[in-house]
Design a binder for these strands. Structure first.
Length: 582
RNA sequence: GGGGUCGUAGUUCAGUCGGUUAGAACGCUGGCCUGUCACGCCAGAGGUCGCGGGUUCGAGUCCCGUCGGCCCCGCCA
């Protein structure tokens, strides 16, 4: 049976026979004349049954019986419509199929919501009936795009000589990092597998194995709370290669993006600009800067210290952002920003308006000369608004970085059709954690320090730079990676610096440390957030729009109703007793 | 864990200051209709106002609790 996709038909098929199969989008009954819009994954085409043009009584009877979402197969002849009946709103609007036979394959209950791009049904309903939601062309298009991108990635990686290798899903829990999803072992009662947060250790082992160039479109699991761009199970394009350096990774990824992003009409210019972590923080207050607009952070510590204002005098740094034409913001709006700043940890937010009135929240500390000196330091123009935060540098980065993004969106400063790709490099190797009073690995504990920084691991950990890199687009982290440590000696020093005892390290990563004793090549890699890539390319607002069966904000699958209770018998077999049976 | 917001017919929503029988549109059911594509016309069915409790003569509306969707903070090496 030669089936054609409905959406692919056009004038060039006029006069030829065609068979389509799909769902009834809409039936319009005129008595002796019936139109049926038939939908399949490619689109919609109009079928016509016309008694006056020779359609049989039986055919008409079937056509009249059709309801939304009935499944049918239609055979007929493609015909160009007369000029007056063409529909320019439909891609197939110039033609229709004159049915010679209609086979009713399946009836359907009235759907709980209309299967139509126009209608915004409640999200929980859409998730419960996901199979219906996926019939909607807009959503189906995203899933189809996802396939194209995955295929593009595989094709590219294969040509670059990479092997697609699967790694275990049932693996070992390695605390530190995200919370693990655990799977109890039946054979070894009281023990648990963990689902992988990423295939990190396995891909490094594959390098020790000499397989040399690995990639995988890998499912990863993290038991943390969700966001619109975070699902508990998600997909990474995971990559690792031996005998390579940073430049290899940059070129590889730029080449991949140059192939894949144009599939969604997004232009790619390579090579991507690079920015040091320090510069990113100083200019944008964040390690994944959105470079599509200005309003950068400006250091005004020198000018601010000249003012007799305690919060400035005592601060480690004083920095500000200048909102173009922001002097029109109301007191209320500025108060909201102030509150936002406090929520982010600022002790206060100083504002200055550069209109004729020279308004400021610290006006009583400012004479005209000092007001102007701050204005000059901020390089502000007439009618601009400055927002200034003083305090610890990391805190100031945080607050101003967030306010910058918020204002950029609200003030419409972000140009719509721009795609700013960027490498962020020279990350610090460690990050100081106030709470526990120790250093953490910023990326992960296998990341190599820069060669010239190796001695700082012990002498000045905070100043040690890593051979790590992130690829960022429009302020979104698309992926990150590093060149890894490949000697047991350096790895041990790293663990010690992190306060992980030899015993601990043995227990958690012993197999990797062991492996490194048997000849580990220099290697490194990167992991890309595949769902996020698809989301960007689909111009979707949420990851849920690009995953076939996503979970809710509370990590449930409303379709299958997972997670769910299990039989007492199943728990017994696993040697598990619930603490609070209910 | 915290904050915000939403929850009324199958769907999307309206519902005034707490007051009589809870409405609209779409959808659905039946009928008519030959060029529609948001078809049109006629008739009709359809409600646990998320759930539980409270205040009140009286609650969709007020109060408390709870459940669920979404967004944000924390969290996500």
């Amino acid at each position: 049976m030669n089936r054609t996709y409905a959406g692919t038909l056009d004038k060039s098929h006029a006069g030829s026979a065609a068979t389509i199969a799909g769902w009834v989008q809409k039936q319009r009954d005129f008595g002796e004349l019936v139109f049926i819009d038939v939908r399949d994954r490619s689109g919609i085409v109009q079928v016509v049954v016309d008694r006056s043009k020779g359609a049989s009584e039986e055919l008409l009877a079937i056509a009249k019986e059709l309801r939304s979402e009935f499944v049918l197969r239609v055979a007929g002849e493609v015909r160009e419509r007369s000029e007056s009946t063409k529909n320019s709103k439909m891609p197939t609007g110039e033609i229709e199929i004159v049915a010679t036979s209609i086979e009713l394959l399946s009836r359907a209950d009235t759907p709980p919501f209309p299967v139509d791009d126009e209608v915004d049904a409640a999200e929980d309903l859409r998730l419960k009936y996901r199979y219906l939601d996926l019939r909607r062309p807009a959503l189906a298009r995203n899933i189809i795009l996802r396939d194209r991108i995955a295929h593009g990635v595989r094709d590219y990686m294969h040509r670059q000589g990479f092997l697609e290798i699967e790694t275990p899903i049932l693996t070992k829990s390695t605390p530190e990092g995200a919370r693990d999803y655990l799977v109890p072992s039946r054979v070894h009662k009281g023990t648990f597998y963990a689902l992988p947060q990423s295939p990190q250790i396995f891909k490094q082992l594959l390098m020790v194995s000499g397989l040399d160039r690995y990639y995988q479109i890998a499912r990863c699991f993290r038991d943390e709370d969700l966001r619109r761009d975070r699902q508990p199970e998600f997909t990474q394009v995971d990559i690792e290669a031996s005998f390579i350096d940073e430049e290899f990774v940059f070129t590889l990824i730029e080449g991949m993006f140059a192939e894949v992003f144009p599939l969604a009409g997004i232009p790619i210019t390579t090579p991507f600009p690079r920015m040091g972590w320090q510069e990113a923080m100083d200019r944008f207050g964040i390690d994944r800067p959105d470079t599509r607009f200005g309003m950068e952070l400006i250091d005004i510590t020198a000018a601010a210290k000249a003012i007799d204002f305690a919060a400035f005098r005592e601060a480690e740094t004083v920095r500000g952002i200048v909102v173009p034409r922001g002097s029109s913001l109301s007191r209320r709006q500025i108060d909201d920003l102030s509150e936002e700043a406090k929520k982010l940890g600022a002790s206060g937010l100083v504002w200055m308006k550069f209109d004729g009135l020279r308004g400021s929240s610290i006006k009583k500390f400012l004479d005209d000369a000092k007001f102007d000196s701050l204005r000059d330091a901020l390089r502000a123009n007439f009618n601009d608004l400055a927002l200034i935060v003083a305090g610890k540098t990391t805190r100031v980065w945080d607050v101003l970085g967030s306010l910058r993004l918020k204002l950029g969106k609200e003030q419409g400063l972000i140009p719509g059709d721009r795609w700013d790709f960027l490498w962020v490099v020279d990350f610090p190797l460690f990050e100081w954690d106030e709470e526990s009073g120790r250093f953490f690995a910023r990326h992960h504990p296998f990341t190599s320090p820069r060669l010239e920084d190796v001695e700082k691991i012990e002498s000045d950990p905070g100043a040690t730079l890593a051979r790590a890199y992130d690829v960022v687009m429009n302020g979104l982290e698309l992926g990150g990676g590093s060149i890894r440590i490949n000697t047991p000696e350096l790895q041990s020093r790293m663990f010690r610096a992190l306060g992980i005892s030899d015993e601990d390290a043995r227990d958690r990563f012993g197999f990797l440390i062991d492996a490194f004793r048997y000849g580990a090549p220099p290697h490194g890699g990167v992991a890309l957030g595949f769902d996020r890539m698809v989301m960007l390319m689909a111009r979707a607002e949420s990851l849920r729009e690009v995953i076939a069966f996503p979970k809710t904000a509370r990590a449930q699958d409303l379709l299958s109703e997972a997670p769910s209770r299990v039989d007492e018998k199943q728990l017994d077999e696993l040697g598990i007793a619930l603490k609070r049976p209910s």
